[in-house]
């Protein structure tokens, strides 16, 4: 594959990287935000509307992050304070946020507006091949690359990251050790939600520019699948995003070959991605992780023990 194709895969996957890492952070703390497909729509709409109205792309990103954090906050509140089922509340918010985006975004459909400006990194972008692939994008794309590294470092190299994992794995044990389970779950649901919103903005202000009804439908579900595919590991989740980006590019390249199946090819990456989950769940793949010591954590895909459960102070 040539450098331009790979660069386009990296760019296409950027919104998914933000959203998948955001959801990974939230789920690591034990909360499932199932609303993603609606939240991405709503935040993409809010980002575009804000940027178009104010002329500021940065404000668009901020508004999207805030909107998405609020939706996530409803899930955290209803789970932590009201002990409601996270899946149920998340599903309702998925439909509600999606419909809200259609209703409130009416006047922004197919309008022009500002987008993230390209930014070649001086010096680095001139390196043959690598420069084209990694350093000829924009701030949104570079930010997603930095986020992968920072999240990895935070999860596995900091004390706060250890506490985050403890809260998600065994909240009761974490509580007994004096960790503020509820406070941390709130914080990480907000933070994760904000990154999902940034993902929405990365769609409507960059990769899939503009707004129309159902602009980014189905990407939220793919992100939720990628988080599982990613085994709640930031680097593997990012790999899943790039893999999906590649699938999309392949489907796009196949379209001229099968002109009559354009519509079918457009949705094929979705089931293909989801059915990779089946392969990942096979014992043969999982035992690979035990044999390859170096990549053990990378290959082991297990949900945090306390994921989706209600925490009760003993």
């Amino acid at each position: 594959m040539d450098a331009v194709t790979i660069a386009s895969i990296i760019a296409a996957a950027t919104p998914l990287v933000y959203a998948a890492l955001g959801e990974t952070i939230t789920e690591k703390a034990g909360i499932v935000n199932l609303s993603l497909d609606g939240t991405l729509l709503l935040s993409a709409m809010v980002a575009f509307a804000t940027a178009q109205t104010t002329g500021s792309v940065l404000l668009g990103f901020a508004a999207a992050a805030g909107t998405s954090a609020i939706v996530a906050g409803i899930i955290a509140f209803s789970s932590i304070e009201l002990k409601l089922n996270q899946i149920a509340v998340g599903f309702v918010l998925f439909l509600l946020a999606g419909d809200l985006s259609s209703l409130l975004g009416q006047s922004f459909v197919r309008e022009p507006g500002p987008s993230v400006p390209p930014l070649n990194i001086a010096g680095l972008s001139d390196i043959p091949w690598f420069g084209k692939v990694f350093f000829s994008h924009n701030l949104s794309v570079y930010g997603s690359m930095v986020l992968i590294i920072v999240t990895y470092w935070y999860f596995y190299r900091t004390r706060a990251g250890l506490e985050l994992q403890a809260v998600g794995e065994r909240p009761e044990a974490a509580f007994a050790r004096g960790i503020h389970v509820e406070r941390l779950r709130y914080i990480y649901t907000f933070v994760g939600g904000a990154f999902v919103g940034i993902g929405g903005a990365a769609f409507s202000l960059d990769v899939k520019f503009g707004w129309s009804e159902g602009h980014v439908t189905n990407f939220g579900w793919i992100v939720l699948a990628i988080v599982i595919f990613g085994g709640w590991h930031p680097a593997r989740a990012a790999l899943g995003c790039y893999l999906f980006g590649a699938l999309q590019v392949v489907a796009l390249k196949l379209q001229p070959t099968f002109p009559s199946f354009t519509q079918v090819l457009g949705i094929m990456p979705f089931p293909v991605m989801i059915f990779m989950l089946v392969a990942i769940n096979r014992p043969a793949f999982r035992s690979l992780g035990d044999r390859l010591g170096l990549f053990r954590r990378f290959l082991r895909a297990e949900a945090p023990g306390g994921l989706g459960t209600i925490f009760e102070r003993g």
């Binding site: 918010l93 439909l95 509600l96 419909d99 809200l100 209703l103 009416q106």
Partner: peptide, 10 residues
């Protein structure tokens, strides 16, 4: 916009 129906239901 008829999406208002979905908003109400949600």
């Amino acid at each position: 916009d008829s999406a208002v129906g979905g908003v109400l239901q949600g």
